[in-house]
């Protein structure tokens, strides 16, 4: 029995470090539902207005703007033209813009996009699942994502101006990785 004493002590203390380390570490580094600058946005796979399916993976390596909006939100409507103009100016330079609608009917979204002249890709969330994963509280909310997938800024509320949007795009394109 005696010769096993040392190994038993090592095994017990090793297990303590392993299990205890995991448990304590979990409390220190637990991720909260709220996204912040420097995080990676959650993945999504959604239907677009034109009927195609878009996966967030296809935007990897490109500067990305994700705008959450709803037809019920006046500032969302007001910033649509700015988003559309900026998109026209930057799409050739590889900047991606997606507007994720907040789980409304396709009919309402289509009609709204037509009225406000939004022709950039618009994706349809279902049952608020994507919105919940992004932890949204207010609308509109716009995420600016570096080509390396890290969030550069989260702008809550609106309407955004073209200058505001372009200032962030320039940072994305300059690409501090």
């Amino acid at each position: 029995m005696k010769r096993y004493r040392k190994p038993i002590q090592y095994i017990v203390l090793f297990l303590v470090l392993l299990i205890g380390g995991y448990a304590v570490g979990h409390t220190l580094f637990a991720s909260t539902a709220v996204l912040k600058t420097g995080d990676e946005p959650p993945a999504f796979k959604l239907l677009s207005l034109d009927g195609s399916v878009h996966d967030s993976a296809e935007y990897a390596g490109k500067p990305l703007i994700i705008n959450f909006w709803g037809t019920f939100c006046p500032p969302c409507r007001d910033e649509m033209p700015a988003l559309q103009n900026v998109y026209e100016r930057w799409q050739d330079k590889g900047v991606q813009l997606v507007g994720i609608n907040l789980s409304e009917d396709k009919l309402s979204v289509e009609s709204f996009a037509r009225q406000v002249g939004a022709h950039f890709p618009i994706l349809l969330d279902r049952n608020r699942q994507t919105e919940k994963r992004f932890g949204l509280k207010q609308y509109p909310t716009t995420f600016f994502v570096y080509p390396n997938g890290k969030i550069e800024a989260i702008l809550i509320g609106g309407p955004l101006t073209e200058e505001q949007i372009e200032a962030h795009i320039e940072k994305l394109v300059a690409g501090r990785s």
Binding site: F72, P74, L107
Partner: peptide
């Protein structure tokens, strides 16, 4: 033919029809 739909009908500050909520 359904052309448009509003869940919570109202008018925005410029008098255009809009939905106030989902």
């Amino acid at each position: 033919t359904l052309k448009d739909k509003f869940m919570d009908f109202g008018l925005d500050d410029q008098g255009r029809p809009m939905t106030k909520s989902r």
